[in-house]
């Protein structure tokens, strides 16, 4: 089986090299597209288990959640659009695994009108079923409310003022879990999963003004921006892109979608790097040739 796997991946590398050669030869970008498609799809069919090392930012977030007393109240946000589901949904899954495993009370919410409440509902109910959690006792979905700055600020005074009802229209006063939860002071940790700059507001409003610890899961493109907040202590750890989610899954010993995606991502990254290097070698040699002809 291992020999077959090695053979399959050698074949895949050769196909990629051939497609890259054809792209250079014919100057047709469709060969590049074909190579990327191969590298994305093939590892999904023939999965390779790669060793995942944990970065300090992910470990910090894991440790912060792990250190919460059992039955703590945690707010988990689904601040992402469906376009980035591949990166962000594994983070939400991993976070819920961790929180339900620790018997935490989970409040979910979103600042994204397009599908945010649906994603929160789908993901949370799926994981709740696995851990035998009951809606209204172990978790609540607050849904969406317009104008996120006012929502984030307003929940500092009263969650019920901002969200008089949950996502399905039940009054918060009728939900047992929300009986003793009035505002941020009753929430022990905030886990923000986002694909946009809402993270800045969670830091500048909720962490800075209400002292709530905020941990985040963001897309790989966004991650470099938030190292500054981790260093200043305003952010308690971060999952950066699918790799961050894979690291969290590994720490939880629950390898899932993010771990599976690592092979595709590795191969595509390596292919891009290889094509950039090859492109530069051709660029430099052709430039040298042109310069040589001129002199």
């Amino acid at each position: 089986m291992t020999i077959l796997l090695v053979f399959a991946y050698i074949l895949l590398i050769l196909i990629g090299a051939f497609l890259l050669y054809m792209a250079f030869k014919t100057d047709d970008r469709r060969y590049i597209y074909a190579a990327v498609a191969f590298y994305v799809i093939f590892p999904v069919i023939v999965t390779l288990k790669l060793p995942i090392t944990t970065s300090p930012e992910v470990k910090q977030l894991y440790d912060a959640v792990e250190a919460l007393p059992d039955s703590s109240t945690v707010m988990l946000t689904f601040d992402y659009y469906p376009s980035t589901l591949a990166e962000t949904e594994p983070m939400s899954h991993a976070a819920l695994h961790h929180l339900f495993r620790k018997d935490c009370k989970v409040i979910t919410m979103t600042t994204i009108p397009l599908g945010g409440p649906s994603i929160a509902e789908r993901v949370t109910r799926k994981l709740a079923e696995e851990y035998n959690k009951v809606y209204g006792i172990d978790f609540v979905n607050l849904g969406y409310k317009a104008n996120y700055v006012a929502v984030l600020k307003g929940m500092g005074t009263s969650i019920e003022t901002i969200y008089p009802t949950d996502n399905s229209g039940t009054r918060l006063s009728e939900i047992p879990m929300m009986e003793n939860i009035e505002n941020y002071s009753d929430i022990d940790f905030i886990f923000v999963v986002a694909d946009n700059s809402i993270v800045d507001y969670w830091i500048s409003i909720v962490n800075a003004q209400y002292n709530n610890p905020v941990g985040t899961g963001v897309t790989a493109v966004m991650a470099p921006r938030y190292f500054a907040y981790i260093s200043s202590g305003q952010m308690t750890g971060m999952l950066g892109g699918m790799k961050g989610a894979a690291e969290y899954e590994t720490l939880l010993n629950k390898p899932a979608a993010a771990n599976m995606g690592m092979t595709s991502q590795s191969l595509v990254h390596l292919f891009i790097i290889f094509s950039v290097i090859a492109g530069n070698i051709i660029f430099l040699t052709s430039k040298k040739g042109r310069d040589g002809k001129r002199t």
Partner: peptide, 28 residues
């Protein structure tokens, strides 16, 4: 949302990988 909107948005975003690969190869 789950069967039309979400797959369409994911598809549009996934196309970026192809353009980035092509752009990196040509312009970097």
């Amino acid at each position: 949302f789950n069967y039309i909107d979400s797959p369409m948005m994911s598809t549009m975003f996934a196309m970026l990988a192809f353009y980035i690969a092509s752009a990196a190869f040509r312009a970097f």
